[in-house]
């Protein structure tokens, strides 16, 4: 890829004695959709969470459009660095496995709140934006609903709307459908597919290989804290070059694409 919009350079993350990521580098071009796949514990979520510095790595640099999001190791962050990081975070949307919508606010307020606080939009502008974002994910009729009353798929779409309203330049998705009941997966994938169609730059950790095949420009296969193989979906999945990817795909097809539910109950 010639255009390096998001750059992750030499990311090493340790959890105690465990090296979850071992100097991983990955870049994503503007408008590109990259899916990260791999067995549980391979470090794909950790890599994703390094991209907006939510799980700061022990070593490595993250740049977005040439400007530094985070650099490690570093001493105590200065006020200017914290401000810069939050500026980046406001433009990097993140969607979580567990949705993390705010239960104390209605759907509309969930989408309005960060716009007003972080982007300093006035109420009417933020609400207009929120209505549009909620309509984009098919939740126009749920504006005033409490998250408690929404299904898992609706909560995840609400979470997506919340980040979309911030006009993100990049979306990070951490297993967006893993905590969903099977019949609710499709409605969320449909929203993600539409985002891919409008050229949203996305980095997606997923277990949905069928979905990855459809929307990804590139699939990155990770194992044991490193990138093993990457390439266009068709090529990678039909002709895996490494035995490890072959073994991973075999295991998946044997069990007819099992959903990873290990983290779902946390």
């Amino acid at each position: 890829m010639a255009d390096k919009y998001l750059e992750l350079i030499g990311i090493t993350t340790r959890f105690g004695d465990v090296e979850a990521l071992q100097g991983v580098s990955l870049s994503v071009a503007r408008g590109e959709v990259v899916c990260l796949i791999g067995p549980s514990g391979c470090g794909k979520s950790t890599l994703l969470r390094a991209a907006n510095w939510l799980t700061p790595p022990n070593e490595g640099t993250v740049r977005l459009d040439g400007s530094v999001v985070g650099h490690a190791p570093q001493g105590r962050a200065t006020a200017a660095q914290i401000r810069a990081l939050n500026g980046h975070r406001a433009r990097i949307g993140m969607v979580f496995q567990q949705f993390n919508v705010w239960p104390h606010l209605t759907a509309l307020e969930n989408v309005v709140r960060a716009q007003m606080v972080v982007l300093r939009r006035d109420k009417s502008e933020a609400e207009a934006k929120a209505r549009q974002a909620l309509a984009d994910v098919g939740l126009s009729d749920k504006m005033d609903a409490w998250p408690e009353r929404l299904s898992g798929g609706q909560k995840q779409r609400l979470a997506i709307a919340r980040t979309l309203a911030m006009d993100p330049v990049l979306m990070l998705m951490d297993e967006p459908t893993s905590a969903l009941d099977p019949e609710l997966v499709a409605e969320v994938l449909a929203v993600l597919q539409r985002l891919a169609e409008i050229q949203m730059t996305m980095l997606i950790v997923t277990h949905e290989l069928g979905f990855a095949m459809r929307v990804a420009d590139r699939i990155v296969f990770m194992e044991a804290g490193g990138i093993v193989e990457q390439g266009p979906p068709q090529e990678l999945l039909s002709n895996p070059r490494t035995d490890r990817l072959k073994a991973f795909l075999d295991k998946l097809s044997l069990t007819t694409l099992p959903k990873d539910r290990e983290h779902a109950e946390i």
């Binding site: 907006n52 939510l54 914290i82 939050n86 500026g87 975070r89 406001a90 990097i92 949307g93 993140m94 979580f96 567990q98 993390n100 919508v101 705010w102 960060a114 606080v117 972080v118 979470a159 919340r162 980040t163 911030m166 990070l172």
Partner: peptide, 18 residues
């Protein structure tokens, strides 16, 4: 309050008092 609530807020750029 689940830690995901902190994460979602941080990821949106909220910090400190907000």
């Amino acid at each position: 309050v689940p830690s995901g609530q902190f994460e979602a807020a941080s990821a949106l750029g909220l910090k400190g008092p907000a």
